[in-house]
């Protein structure tokens, strides 16, 4: 692969790093913050299962994102990804629960506007729809799961010491599921825009063929793993001890319900299974993990009778729906202009 190809991939690698540093922390934040799971264990699980999720079933959500706009020149992909990454950075600094999904969608729409390709309204509606019902679904699942867990705990009379052991196991299993789902669903945000202009070609290794797209997802997964190892510990400790005071058991409920939401919007197998039975299926598009997590926390809060429900959090989510894609689209449009006219690189064909 040419050096230029790697250079243009760098913004995607940065997005991957950011996903590993921030979103992985949402999965294991409370577990690590409350010292139920050592950071080393959390980091290894995240790195392995995010990459696995990305390579095995990352393609579904990437197709959903691709339907919105197929960025077909590598310099264009670089700018779209960089615009999204910068928006994420800004919003994080502003303290808003930012979503990489919303940033990348805005950036792609910016590319569509710049290149003159039409934005697929149906795809856009499908994706934006998930921003609304992603958190709602998260809340509903967490609400139900909370009662199921409480029912079980009240029936089984497990001693606190033994419960501690079970909770650690549950947190690790939910973390595995959460990491896999994150890789499957959100890796599209990291490398999705590079798929149409992928610099990779199909490979055969030890009799196994690996497509260019899978290699792209593997690179994204590795960038995410680097993010997990290098930076997520700080974020985990913030999530675990400062932002939301969750007990280890409620943390399990939040992780499991968030992971389920991400999984529902990423699994091609589930989609096929539902369609075969004539049931409505979930669109395969990237959804916001952090907002699904906030939705889950709201679900638990409602299950507890609606106490401690912070309306400011809801307001921030709604603000994120508008502010993140708008900023990303604007930034993407302006940066594409510079790339094309100042650096003389083709941003679309």
């Amino acid at each position: 692969m040419a050096f230029a190809g790697l250079l243009f991939l760098s913004s995607g690698l940065y997005m991957g790093w950011s996903l590993g540093a921030n979103d992985a922390a949402n999965i294991f934040g409370t577990a690590v913050g409350t010292r139920m799971v050592p950071f080393r264990t959390a980091a290894i699980i995240c790195a392995i299962f995010i990459t696995l999720g990305a390579v095995v079933s990352g393609a579904g959500a990437a197709k959903g994102l691709g339907a919105l706009g197929a960025v077909n020149a590598l310099p264009g992909s670089f700018i779209v990804s960089a615009a999204a990454a910068t928006t994420v950075l800004w919003m994080t600094r502003a303290g808003l629960p930012v979503s990489t999904t919303q940033a990348i969608v805005g950036a792609i729409v910016g590319w569509n506007l710049f290149s003159g390709y039409p934005t697929d309204q149906e795809a856009l509606t499908r994706i934006v729809g998930t921003w609304i019902y992603g958190p709602i679904l998260g809340a509903a699942i967490a609400f139900l799961l909370f009662f199921v867990v409480r029912f079980i705990l009240n029936r089984l009379h497990i001693h606190l010491i033994r419960l501690d052991k079970y909770t650690r196991t549950a947190l690790i299993l939910a973390g595995i599921f959460g990491s896999y789902s994150l890789g499957a669903n959100n890796m599209a945000n990291v490398v999705g825009v590079f798929v149409p202009a992928s610099p990779f070609t199909d490979l055969r290794l030890l009799g196994v063929s690996i497509t260019g797209t899978q290699q792209l997802f593997l690179v994204g997964g590795l960038a995410t793993a680097v993010g997990v190892v290098t930076y997520s510990k700080r974020v985990m400790l913030t999530v675990g001890s400062a932002l939301f005071k969750l007990s280890p058991i409620t943390a399990f409920v939040v992780i499991a319900s968030t992971a389920t939401v991400l999984f529902l919007f990423a699994s091609e197998g589930l989609e096929a299974w539902l369609q075969m039975r004539g049931l409505p299926s979930f669109p395969l598009v990237p959804v916001s993990q952090s907002q699904a997590a906030v939705g889950s926390i709201i679900g638990i809060s409602l299950a507890k009778g609606g106490r401690n429900l912070n309306l400011k959090v809801l307001r921030n989510i709604v603000m994120g729906w508008v502010a993140t894609p708008t900023s990303a689209a604007l930034l993407s449009y302006v940066a594409l202009f510079f790339m094309q006219n100042v650096f003389m690189q083709p941003v679309y064909v």
Binding site: T34, R35, L160, D164, P248
Partner: peptide
Amino acid sequence: EMLIPDSRGDV
């Protein structure tokens, strides 16, 4: 043995 980190102080 790093048990019940969350409620160790209480116990």
